[in-house]
Design a protein around this nucleic acid. Structure first.
Lengths: 210, 210
DNA sequence: AAATTATCCCGTATTAAGGGGTATTACGTA
DNA sequence: TACGTAATACCCCTTAATACGGGATAATTT
């Protein structure tokens, strides 16, 4: 069946060969059409209003503005445009930065014909295409450390601290005296080697204690 | 080719029909074998050492201990066992709780033959099988709100607060006076309607400002 | 039964953080 | 050019949190 409205795809990629090859692949599908293929985020951003892409395939390493910064701006100007990062890097910092910036998918440049098109289709059906490694990286990021040095009660209190509660609120919520709450927090600080609530929260997030 | 070692799968599911149907599907594959199919986490946990499953298919709603609590305990006793939640719920709270507990995949009970087996294969190759909706839910969870009420500088300072820095450290890091840092923080508090660092961090995470 | 761990409570001194103002400079833009 | 916004800086004062003492009772594990 011929679809009346193909999904509009923009490609942002500085390597002309890759850009052309991606364009060919995307255009080969009945469901998608490349509305533009540019070499920089600056170009992509200035063409947003004219080309109205529904999906952007975005490289990370680009001359001028990088793909993460570009993703932020595109999502700001056009929130309903879905952005898929297409890159050689699977470095965890970059991945999380890209996701924070607003990317809805993350695949590698080694993606073949099929993988690229199925990523686009996955986006269309409301999913979030990722390579296996990225998916695991993302999921692992949620896992709470089961080997926490903290006791149950301490973890409970750390949780309340992370919710912004004061000593008084914590003691009231747990039906203990303020002094007891204080002691627990002292013990938490000593175990985590910190000496303030916000440091404790930072360490808790870093080591996935809560 | 016949594989010499099939991956050992345990099924935890209280509905006997579903349990049997899953067992049949898993056993139908050359690559997997069901080492046990039990109706509760308690049973699963007590059989861990004997059956040594490499993958657990885990229901969430179970009589006695629920699947999330069970996941925590299994991951604690057997960290290298991968757990896939198989459930009817795609409620975001439950999903994130399950992932925090240590699940490496999350599919729905409506999963058919193919989907179930490909989830298992995805786990084996180090991925994290998820339904489209779950994947998007997880990715969306990373996105930073582009409509923050905070200025660049304020966001920068909020970031430092979330890293556990004191007023003094912040002022030193940004080459501004302590009083200026204080003013920025006051402004942040007024915009976020909070009045402490930890509350600010909590709100920042909630509204994805950093 | 002993040892360990977790939980609980109190006081005092010091420091960090919060609440209230006020003000200057600079920058972009309406 | 005049306006609003952002970033910078200072003052006084109050409250919250941390540092450092002390000690005690359940609950588990060995």
């Amino acid at each position: 069946m011929a679809l009346p409205f193909k999904k509009r795809v923009m490609i942002v990629e500085d390597d002309q060969e890759i850009r052309n090859s991606f364009s060919l692949i995307v255009n080969s599908s009945q469901k998608f059409t490349v509305v533009n293929a540019v070499g920089s985020c600056e170009d992509a951003i200035s063409l947003l209003n004219r080309d109205k892409p529904e999906i952007v395939l975005m490289d990370i390493e680009l001359p001028g503005m990088n793909g993460i910064q570009g993703t932020k701006i595109i999502k700001d100007k056009s929130p309903h445009t879905d952005i898929i990062m297409v890159t050689v890097y699977e470095d965890s910092e970059l991945v999380f930065e890209a996701l924070k910036a607003g990317a809805s998918g993350y695949i590698t440049k080694s993606a073949n014909y099929m993988e690229l098109l199925s990523a686009l289709e996955e986006i269309v059906k409301g999913g979030a295409p990722m390579s296996s490694r990225i998916a695991r990286m993302v999921i692992d990021n949620f896992h709470v450390n089961p080997n926490s040095p903290l006791t149950k009660r301490e973890t409970e209190i750390l949780q309340l601290i992370s919710e912004g509660k004061t000593y008084t609120q914590i003691s009231e919520e747990l039906f203990i005296s303020k002094e007891t709450a204080k002691t627990h927090i002292k013990n938490i600080y000593s175990k985590l080697q910190v000496n303030s609530k916000s440091e404790a929260i930072a360490k808790a997030n870093l080591e996935k204690l809560i």
